[in-house]
Amino acid sequence: MRITPSAGHLSGVSPDRNRWGLHYVALLCLLSSPVRTDDACPSSCSCARDSGTVTCLPGGGQTDLPADIPRWTSTLILKGRNISTLPQGAFTVNGTELEMVTLSLSYNGIQIIEPYAFLGLHRLHLLDLSHNQLEIISSRAFHGLSELRSLFLNYSFSPGATGQLSGALSAQSLRNLHRLELAGNKLKFIPIKRLDIYNLHALVLINNSIENLGRENISSFYQQRRIRVYLALNPFRCNCELEVFYYWLKNSSQCQDAERVICSEPEARRGIPVAKLRGEDVDCMNENLEAVSYVFLGIVLALIGVVFLMVLYLNRGGIKRWLNNIREACRDQMEVYHYRYEQDSDPRLANVAV
């Protein structure tokens, strides 16, 4: 059997030294290559590595989501970038999940949030989507945010999209939500089907179009005593239908801005704080009794009128004779006055009289 000598033996260099030399050359090539690392700051953004904050403002022609967010990012602030759509997995980088805790997306003109848009952000605690123009929001938009504590959706929805909000907020993944802000969305009702599936401590509903809170909502508030509600700048209709809400506002401290909950209708009560109304102002029983009393008075008056007409009808003969007698008496009296007038006006009769 013939043995062929190796390259190491021919060159007089041992195989171990040759192997180490190859490793050294490969390491030098890797370090000198211009490949971008995951720690680099995205273009048109400013980064603070110590605090883990990446801030991306308008500029440099960047109007979309940055595709190279550093893995060390704990706080990402995007503002004024004209992001029309948040697609599925919008914040995953090369399939890698980020350890992000705070995400602010206010003032970006967002119109559509697709299903699983925040996929992979398992540690996200605060999400701010305020001051956008949402027209479509998927019922699975917030899926995967199991650690989310604060969700800000102030002034975010177009009128046609508020109906989709209930579906999006019904996600079981929001069960740890502590604070929900929905100010300025022209809501006419609370878009939460069940308050007991959340861990809500603060619910902000100021500056909407809420006229009343129904019995079911008030019952939920009584059961979830930890919730603090903010309801100022809503056009409450202060009639007897507000009774349940009125007594909850008077007897509970859950509404943090009760003194700013003002009546909008009717005109006589406009500008009056709901908590300062009298009990009879919203007492449906008294209002119903008052309505019944007016109806009863009307019926009594109608009966009196009918009786009076019947009396007149039954005595029509006597009334006719009485009217004829009065007419004859008036005629005789007028004839006497007429005769005296003729005597006083005739001078010949006057001379005879003298």
Rank of each mutant, 00 (worst) to 15 (best):
R225T: 05
F118V: 02
C330W: 13
R140T: 10
L57M: 04
A268C: 14
I83W: 04
P42K: 02
G95N: 06
R226C: 06
V336W: 10
G80L: 05
D196R: 00
T63H: 12
Q88E: 12
P5V: 03
A26M: 10
L174C: 09
L277V: 01
N351Y: 15
I319F: 11
L153W: 03
S345T: 09
G8K: 08
F296Y: 04
L76E: 03
L174V: 10
L182V: 01
L78S: 03
E280M: 02
F152M: 04
D332N: 12
L134R: 04
E114W: 11
V352K: 09
R81L: 15
E97P: 01
P58D: 11
H122A: 13
W72H: 02
G317R: 09
V352A: 12
D281L: 08
T162M: 03
L213T: 00
L213I: 00
K320F: 15
L86P: 03
G80F: 13
N154F: 09
L180Y: 09
E259R: 02
R149H: 06
L231A: 01
A258F: 01
L169T: 03
L65Y: 03
C47A: 03
R331A: 11
K320M: 11
L312S: 00
C29H: 14
L177K: 06
T4S: 09
N325K: 10
L200Y: 14
A67Q: 08
N251P: 01
Q256N: 02
F142T: 02
N132A: 05
L148E: 15
I210G: 00
G80V: 07
S150T: 11
I190M: 04
G160A: 05
P347G: 09
Y337F: 13
D128Q: 07
N82H: 14
S166C: 00
G279I: 06
C238I: 02
S138G: 11
V35P: 01
L203Q: 11
D16W: 15
S252A: 04
T162S: 02
L148D: 04
R17E: 09
L174E: 11
L233S: 14
H122T: 10
A117F: 00
R348Y: 14
D196Y: 05
N94C: 00
A329W: 08
M285D: 15
L22S: 11
Q133D: 12
T96Q: 08
F221K: 04
I262D: 00
F152C: 05
F142Q: 12
D257V: 05
G163E: 15
M1G: 14
Y198T: 12
N108R: 05
R36Y: 08
E114R: 12
E181C: 14
G160W: 13
R49E: 10
V295T: 07
L129W: 12
N94E: 07
E280V: 08
P5K: 07
C284I: 05
S150V: 12
K79N: 05
I326H: 10
